[in-house]
Write a protein that binds this DNA or RNA. Structure first.
Length: 156
DNA sequence: GCCAACGTTGGC
DNA sequence: GCCAACGTTGGC
């Protein structure tokens, strides 16, 4: 089983929205590297749900992959902000897996806090200039963050 | 709102 | 293939 992290602006789609919906198709990703990661997700993979571009940025909860990626329908919809005129039904460019709500953390594990944890210093999320909205996470990083969410915030 | 770091586009 | 211009992401 693999572990991942996905970013979402909570004003667009939050962990609370996912809890309400139970599951959702992860559409709208329009970056090739992120697309490739989405396509390599398999059912059962666990996903850290990150809130970006917000008053409080950080990891808000956990989801899991409930179905592998299929063509992202929004690429064919001329009225969608995610429309891609170069995509065709025969050769779709963009793909969306289905992810299912697992839990919202009792507290958001904030970005500033993640930066203080030595064991996480190699995380893609923390790499300078990193903007990838879908990224792999190691089993150890996933465990560390789950444990942080269940404990008190890291000081220092 | 600012801006650094990226990614994409398109002329040549 | 190069690279300048432009657009986007996302922290602060």
């Amino acid at each position: 089983m693999a572990y991942w992290l996905v970013k979402s602006e909570p004003s667009v789609y939050s962990i609370g929205d996912l809890r309400r919906d139970r599951s959702t198709l992860w559409t709208g990703v329009r970056n090739y590297q992120a697309r490739n990661y989405l396509r390599s997700m398999t059912k059962g993979d666990e996903v850290l749900f990150y809130h970006s571009n917000n008053d409080v940025t950080g990891i808000a909860g956990i989801a899991k992959v409930s179905a592998p990626a299929e063509a992202d329908e929004s690429q064919f919809d001329a009225k969608s902000e995610y429309y891609d005129p170069k995509a065709t039904k025969e050769e779709p460019r963009w793909f969306a897996p289905e992810i299912r709500f697992v839990k919202a953390f009792a507290r958001i594990v904030e970005l500033a806090e993640l930066k203080k944890v030595r064991a996480l210093s190699k995380m893609e999320l923390l790499r300078k200039g990193s903007r990838l909205s879908v990224q792999p996470v190691t089993p150890d990083e996933f465990e560390q963050i789950s444990a942080l969410a269940d404990g008190d915030p890291v000081r220092k």
